[in-house]
């Protein structure tokens, strides 16, 4: 197991390096740079600025320096748009916010989805099951950018119960709507996956054996059916977590929560490619990390999986 994790981490390194190179290259290909504006700068000024950020160097040298900076100093370079801040500062400011509501949304999606899914499967073809199926069917059609304005209209404009935006140190009133907006469609997806997987498991031979042994039904479900039924759900959790973090692009814009998504959108508008690159690599690293966690969870759920 340990060896497997080590091997997976070793494989992740080249993945990330390729990601860095690919992103760097794509940024260069995109037309325009951070200092192109409608009124062209005098050539001397432009040359000075470019020299300061190292943009006059050949491309391979820029790329190499960038990579060396990340590997040796964990330094993603200076921001092009904000004179006295570098990319690390921007990430350090926004990421904790994003991580806070991202993790909460992830937990809500996972536990609510699994809970409703298992309940619906166990009470198959009862009113509970029908309601769960109906509700998830509609909820799946509500991605975060649809949920966010609806929530604001209802809870802020109409009812006036919740603040329409801001962060305020992460007080709960400010967290409710971002979390609901982010998690709704994922609660629905996880419910559906859990329900169908649980139904399939409950029909399998070993559940029949467990019942033939005279075990009480709660024991059949929790001890015998739960782990096998979780396998497909767990494989969906990796992408779900990544979606929670990248969903911050929408949430930060709607609710002004000040997470990393805001910086991401701004950097694109400002052609601040240092920030864009930094955030993209951060997202990439998280994706790799979560897929690894999912594979580890798989091994725990299913002893047949060997590495």
């Amino acid at each position: 197991m340990t060896a497997y994790i080590v091997r997976r981490v070793l494989v992740a390194v080249p993945t990330l390096v390729i990601l860095i190179f690919a992103c760097f290259f794509l940024m260069q290909v995109a037309p325009g740079g951070p200092f192109t504006s409608e009124r062209p700068l005098p050539p001397q000024v432009l040359a000075n600025i470019e020299a300061r950020y190292g943009l006059d160097q050949p491309l391979w040298k820029q790329m190499w320096d960038y990579l060396v900076g990340i590997v040796t100093r964990f330094d993603f370079g200076p921001s092009f748009a904000y004179r006295d801040r570098d990319v690390n500062d921007i990430i350090a400011q926004g990421f904790p916010v994003t991580l806070t509501y991202g993790l909460i949304s992830f937990a809500v999606a996972t536990f609510a989805g699994m809970g409703i899914g298992v309940a619906a499967a166990v009470r198959h073809n009862t009113w509970l099951d029908y309601i769960a199926v109906g509700a998830t069917f509609s909820a799946q059609a509500l991605p975060n950018f649809v949920m966010a304005p609806i929530l604001v209209i209802v809870f802020t404009w109409q009812l006036g119960w919740l603040p329409g935006g801001g962060w305020n140190g992460g007080q709960w009133q400010y967290l409710v709507m971002p979390v609901i907006a982010l998690s709704t469609s994922y609660v629905a997806s996880i419910t559906r996956i859990t329900r169908s997987s649980m139904l399939e498991t409950l029909n399998s031979d070993f559940i029949r054996t467990a019942r033939a042994k005279g075990l009480p039904e709660h024991r059949v479900i929790w001890r015998h059916a739960m782990k096998p039924a979780m396998l497909p759900v767990v494989s969906y959790l990796g992408p779900t977590f990544v979606a929670m973090i990248t969903g911050s692009v929408v949430i930060d814009v709607y609710f002004s929560t000040g997470g990393i998504g805001r910086a991401y959108v701004d950097s694109a508008l400002n052609r601040d490619y240092a920030v864009m690159l930094g955030v993209t690599i951060l997202y990439g690293g998280l994706t790799v990390l979560f897929n690894l966690l999912v594979d580890v969870a798989y091994a725990w759920l299913d002893p047949k999986i060997r590495y």
């Binding site: 070993f206 029949r208 001890r223």
Partner: peptide, 15 residues
């Protein structure tokens, strides 16, 4: 007590 045809699927895989 009852035993079944397919011993490959009749036991719980993770216990």
């Amino acid at each position: 007590a009852m035993i079944f045809q397919d011993p490959l699927t009749a036991l719980t895989p993770h216990l």
